[in-house]
């Protein structure tokens, strides 16, 4: 299985601001002066040494993760990240029909706003199947492209499969299970297994009761997964301040991953108010917590950014 992140932001698309770019350049120049940078030939190696938040950005597109499993291509959520993914699919297709399955966690804007801009959807030769467990799913997607909100209606290329929320089905030879998560208006997690490897996509969920009994259904759903994609929009403190906003944090994710014997966990759905430096800082603290909690093991943890990829 190959996994690639195309959108990692929650709530709303968040472009990098000029002021943030300037701060990155300023910080890089300062570090360059400190490192005694003198010649062009030193630049590439110096770049690699720069802190993550100076050298790169997490990205501003909203929720979208591409999973390739054998002949199947699955897309987890259709936030704005699905727009560049669609262009890449067209480029890679060599003019041949494209077949994808889009699995929606829910229909809040940040998870469906990319559908009107998913260019493969406008070619009737392509096969695009959208799965989701929210009632009247097709109507919701059509409403998003009502002429009052968007000039082009939802193309008939999109075939909707209505799930129930506690499903077990297959897409090709990929086995898929779903679970209801904890989010205003509901959200659903997916567990995908192919050739003995398992990825869990569980975003937009707020775990308020962190007792072993209350977390058991979710820990069971994460059990022994090779990779769990986890919503960590807030810090521990923000999670309590923003009660009922429907999101989680890195520390709780780590606890659940350890309990479930997860091998890797990726934190995504970043808060739009969080710049790269703050994100990096939060992640560093999560790494410290993991080292304290599981000094001799535990999952590998990652901060999601656009382009982050895994091969399982």
């Amino acid at each position: 299985m190959n996994i690639c992140f195309w959108g990692v932001r929650g709530s709303i698309g968040t472009a990098l601001k000029n002021s943030e770019v300037e701060l990155k350049i300023e910080e890089a120049l300062r570090l360059g002066v400190k490192a005694g940078l003198r010649e062009d030939s030193q630049v590439s190696a110096f770049m690699q040494e720069l802190p993550w938040y100076v050298r790169q950005t997490a990205g501003g597109d909203t929720a979208c993760v591409e999973i390739t499993a054998g002949d199947e291509r699955l897309i987890m959520d259709a936030g704005s990240g699905i727009r560049p993914l669609g262009l890449k699919l067209i480029q890679d297709s060599g003019g041949n029909p494209i077949k994808v399955a889009i699995l929606l966690s829910h229909t809040h804007w940040d998870h469906i706003c990319g559908i009107p801009f998913f260019v493969p959807g406008f070619n009737p030769r392509n096969t695009i199947t959208v799965y989701g467990a929210h009632s009247n799913l097709e109507e919701r997607l059509r409403d998003q492209q009502d002429s009052r909100f968007f000039p082009v209606p939802l193309p008939s290329t999109f075939k909707v499969v209505q799930l129930s929320g506690n499903d077990h089905f297959t897409v090709g030879d990929v086995e898929i299970e779903t679970i209801p998560l904890k989010h205003p208006g509901d959200s659903f997690g997916y567990r995908l297994t192919h050739n003995g490897k398992t990825v869990v996509y569980a975003t937009d969920s707020e775990y308020k009761d962190l007792s072993t009994e209350a977390l058991k259904p979710f820990v069971d759903f994460f059990q022994s997964a090779d990779l769990v994609i986890y919503d960590a929009q807030y810090t521990m403190v923000e999670n309590v301040e923003k009660e009922n906003w429907g999101h989680s944090n890195m520390f709780t994710g780590i606890d659940m991953a350890i309990e479930a014997g997860v091998k890797r966990m990726v934190f995504t759905h970043h808060d739009p108010v969080c710049d790269d430096k703050r994100l990096g800082d939060f992640f560093q603290k999560a790494e410290e917590y993991l080292r304290m909690y599981a000094p001799s093991g535990g999952p590998l943890i990652y901060l999601a950014y656009e382009g982050l990829g895994f091969t399982l």
């Binding site: 308020k208 962190l210 007792s211 521990m236 403190v237 999670n239 309590v240 301040e241 944090n249 520390f251 709780t252 780590i254 606890d255 304290m292 909690y293």
Partner: peptide, 16 residues
């Protein structure tokens, strides 16, 4: 001997 996120949440929620 150790506090996990479950313990942190309890103290935060009660204090709030």
């Amino acid at each position: 001997s150790f506090i996990a996120s479950a313990g942190l949440r309890v103290v935060l929620v009660i204090a709030k």
